[in-house]
Simulated assay, not measured.
Amino acid sequence: MKSIIFCTSFIKDAESWQSRYQRWLDYYETMPINATRKIMIDDGSPYLPSEKIINTVHHSSPLSLHNDTNLIIRFDDNLGRQSGSAYPGWWRSFLHSINIAKELGVDKIIHIESDAYILTPRLVNFINEIESGWHVLWSPRYKFPETAIQIICRDQFEVFEKLKNNNPSLSFPDIAEKLLPFTAIHQQFKGDRYSEIKKNRWIFRSRKFDKIPIFKRDFFWEPIPADADFVTQGESHQHFEYKRDADA
């Protein structure tokens, strides 16, 4: 099946590009996921990398004019996030992926956010082999579907497009985890938002301490389990490595 990988993006500056988005491109460059393109759908970022690194095109530009393997598709304005449950910038970028998929004639949309990392061949094989449905993983910490990694197959494209067309205002009553029409939630894969799982920090448990450099050190956070299949909301200080030795 012909597939694309995409993430949503908002690039504040050169450091943000290098530590998050370039890192994402590099990580998935040799990942054995069957996909023809890696695309960032951008919410009006103030910073864009050089065309020598990756080409950026307007969201309305015909993709038939661009054969790039890696591409940023950019909206002019930034919609951003207004509250914990109101984030029109993400919704616009996410929903635009159905337009891209239809224009490119692909059979599968693979959504992997720019801070999400797949770690094992068994999850890669699952992504490659699935041929129908709308699939997500599971966050044990929050006990809800993990929307940072999704696989949307062609039989769900009409449902996806209907969701987009029915919400032109990008105003949704709840968070995506509770609204997207998944057909399957897979709890057999181990992973979570490990950057949010803290060790006992005694009197320093408050989130206000998270921004202090010393509290970003691994000592204060639960380690990523050796048998984890994926990580979401990964931080720049965390190390991620695809377990290729298990490919046999």
Results as ranks from 00 to 15, higher is better:
Gly84Met: 08
Tyr87Trp: 15
Ser85Trp: 12
Ser114Glu: 14
Ala116Leu: 00
His111Gln: 11
Leu123Pro: 13
Leu104Pro: 08
Ile98Met: 00
Ile98Phe: 01
Glu103Asp: 04
Glu103Gln: 08
Leu123Ile: 10
Gly105Thr: 09
Thr120Lys: 12
Trp91Glu: 06
Ile112Glu: 05
Ser97His: 01
Leu119Pro: 13
Trp91Asp: 02
His111Ser: 13
His111Lys: 15
Asn99Leu: 11
Ile109Gly: 08
Val106Ala: 10
Ala116Asn: 05
Val106Leu: 07
Ile112Asn: 07
Ile109Cys: 01
Asp115Phe: 04
Ile118Asp: 13
Arg122Thr: 13
Val106Trp: 09
Val106Asn: 04
Leu95Pro: 07
Leu119Glu: 06
Ile100Tyr: 06
Gly89Gln: 03
Leu95Cys: 05
Trp90Thr: 13
Thr120Val: 05
Ile112Gly: 06
Tyr87Thr: 15
Ile110Pro: 00
Leu123Arg: 02
Pro121Asp: 12
Ser114Val: 13
Leu123Gly: 11
Pro88Ala: 09
Ile100Met: 01
Ser114Lys: 10
Arg122Tyr: 11
Tyr87Lys: 15
Lys102Tyr: 08
Ser85Pro: 02
Leu104Met: 05
Tyr87Leu: 13
His111Arg: 14
Leu95Asn: 01
Tyr87Gln: 14
Leu104Val: 02
Ile112Thr: 10
Ile118Glu: 11
Ile110Met: 03
Asn99Met: 02
Glu103Thr: 04
Ser97Asn: 03
Tyr87Pro: 08
Ala101Thr: 03
Ile98Cys: 05
Leu104Asp: 05
Val124Pro: 10
Asp107Val: 01
Ser97Glu: 00
Ile118Ala: 11
Ala101Pro: 05
Ile109Tyr: 06
Lys108His: 00
Ala86Leu: 14
Glu103Phe: 07
Glu113Ser: 07
Val124Ala: 12
Ser85Lys: 14
Ile110Ser: 07
Ser114Phe: 12
Val106Glu: 06
Ser97Arg: 01
Ile100Ser: 09
Leu104Asn: 07
Trp91Gln: 13
Pro88Glu: 01
Phe94Asn: 11
Gly89His: 04
Val124Arg: 00
Asn99Thr: 13
